[in-house]
């Protein structure tokens, strides 16, 4: 894939903070349209910074970041659900539409449809405080997808969930991806999660983050939950884990 074909093209990007020093060093990363790429790295390696650079929230100190069609919507899911506690679940999901100037019945209808798609139709009028952790995260994903983004950036979104909820959320995310269709850059420190979700795993070193390895994940789609028990899955997890250790994790 050349930089031109890619939906996301991060080229030799450095990020250095005035306080805290260099966070990323010479990172090159391309994501093709429709691809799901996981980025794994040890805590503090600059994974979140990389997402924030791609989202346009912080400028790179050097290098370039190009997102084809930035106007056609990027959405982001954070480590915390980041729902507004004073809004109902439906109005939380409708927020990005509202910011885009889509309001009233149309906004509500689109938000309700997205909520139904993540299985929260019955909780449209509930407040976030009334939901379980897993339901809040589903609402956050619905909010991200409501604008039909081409690119979904996910920053360790399931790190706080328990293992059973996390696995269910993985399967739901893959289901949504098949149904809705979006390109995903998924940041995590969980090797199993990275491999299960991705077409390709990019491994970052300890801070300042550099790309130390790329592991293709030829596991096929749709990817049933049982894949987690396969020998091929275990081999890939082992390969990513070795790359992580080699990078100073």
């Amino acid at each position: 894939m050349t930089a031109v074909d890619a939906l996301v093209a991060v080229e030799r990007v450095d990020v250095a903070f005035a306080r805290g020093g260099p966070a990323l060093q010479g990172v090159t990363l391309r994501v093709a349209a429709g691809e799901l790429v996981s980025v794994v790295g040890p805590s503090g390696c600059g994974k979140s910074t990389l997402l924030r650079v791609v989202a346009g929230l912080i400028p790179p100190s050097a290098g370039t970041v190009a997102v084809a069609d930035r106007a056609a919507a990027i959405a982001m899911v954070f480590q915390q659900p980041a729902l507004l506690p004073w809004r109902t679940v439906l109005r939380n999901v409708a927020l990005p539409l509202e910011l885009d100037g889509v309001r009233g019945p149309e906004g509500r209808a689109r938000a309700a449809a997205m909520l139904a798609q993540v299985g929260l139709a019955a909780f449209a009028d509930a407040y976030p405080a009334e939901l379980s952790g897993g339901m809040r995260m589903r609402a956050a994903v619905a909010r991200a997808l409501v604008t039909r983004p081409r690119l979904l950036l996910m920053d360790e979104p399931f790190a706080a969930a328990d293992e059973i909820t996390r696995q269910r959320l993985h399967e739901e995310l893959l289901g949504l991806r098949a149904a809705v269709g979006f390109t995903t850059l998924f940041v995590t420190h969980n090797v199993f999660e990275a491999v299960f979700l991705a077409d390709r795993v990019v491994v970052l070193s300890a801070r300042p983050g550099r790309v130390t390895a790329e592991v293709a994940v030829p596991l096929g789609r749709p990817r049933p939950p049982e894949v987690r028990g396969d020998a091929a899955f275990a081999r890939l997890v082992g390969e990513v884990a070795r790359a992580l250790r080699a990078g100073g994790a």
Partner: peptide, 8 residues
């Protein structure tokens, strides 16, 4: 950041 990503 959420608001900024959506161009608020």
């Amino acid at each position: 950041d959420l608001f900024r990503v959506h161009g608020a």
